[in-house]
């Protein structure tokens, strides 16, 4: 099977760096972006199986990333992570058909399990 491709979007570099290192160890190809604009531009060029995105970012935020992905790349699963988790944001994300939703700090093991689950769902 081809290497599965994961995109990580977070306006703090450390989140992308850590996620990239952890996920590459499991054999994924990982690209990281610090904002939604650059991430969406990259999605036009290449396919990603899973997008892990921060919710709150300047400019294009996680909800907008979610909407765009659902509209243009319905096969791609989106996992949302946020430091500002509350019921309202969770409900909003779930309505937008997010695959999973984690408050930060998020245990890497759980994120990995969720990604495996998302990929299995895609078949």
């Amino acid at each position: 099977m081809d290497t599965r491709r994961i995109m990580v979007i977070d306006d703090e570099r450390i989140v992308g760096d850590m996620a990239k290192m952890a996920l590459e160890q499991d054999g994924y190809a990982v690209e990281t972006f610090l904002n939604g604009e650059a991430a969406l531009a990259r999605m036009k060029e290449t396919h990603f199986d899973v997008v892990v995105t921060d919710l709150k970012m300047k400019g294009i935020d996680g909800m907008e990333v979610l909407r765009t992905v659902k509209e243009r790349y319905p096969e791609t699963k989106v996992i949302m992570i946020t430091a500002f988790a509350n019921l309202d944001t969770a409900i909003e994300a779930l309505r937008g058909d997010v695959f999973d939703f984690f408050p930060k700090p998020v245990r890497i093991k759980e994120l990995k399990a969720s990604i495996v689950c998302a990929l299995n769902r895609q078949g």
Partner: peptide, 10 residues
């Protein structure tokens, strides 16, 4: 410790 993704808010 390296097992969590965290950010400056945390």
């Amino acid at each position: 410790g390296g097992d969590y993704l965290f950010d400056i808010t945390y």
